[in-house]
Amino acid sequence: MGLLDQEFSDSNIVIAKSEDLLNWARLSSIWQLSFGLACCAIEMMATSASHYDFDRFGVIPRPSPRQADVILISGTVTLKMATRIKRLYEQMPDPKYIISMGSCANCGGPYWEHGYHVLKGIDRVIPVDVYVPGCPPRPEALLEGLLKLQEKIRHETLRRTA
């Protein structure tokens, strides 16, 4: 749908499908749970900061899971942490999305073989929408992951599945 700013010559009525409108509203203001785990969190911070500016996609960090739409798993998930992340996820209101950032959150990363205290992929605990590869992913890669998530939200439907 894109930006409607300055699209009309005078005030007007817009007719849109409720699905499109809702999806557009959702994907344009994805609030992120401000929550960092490891090295990737630093790249996540760099993405939020001045140079890459996450804000222009409507992503604003929220400290409370109750107000967040997306949780970015930014780093290695350990067994001690996994249950906490699950609880954070459960506290988030629907609709909620998960971006798994970096190799560690995807599959254990460099710790896959000898990491006796590392969870080999966050998808063993909570469902993931977008995987962003890299160790750590560049901020551009994270932005690409976010665009992919927006693409996914754009095609969501309100219809009841049979």
């Binding site: 785990l37 490891a38 780093g75 290695t76 350990t78 001690k80 942490m81 906490r84 460099p110 710790y111 000898h114 990491g115 006796y116 205290h117 590392v118």
Partner: peptide, 9 residues
């Protein structure tokens, strides 16, 4: 909460 087993590796 971020013990990644460095010494074992």
């Amino acid at each position: 909460y971020l013990h990644r087993c460095f010494e074992k590796h």
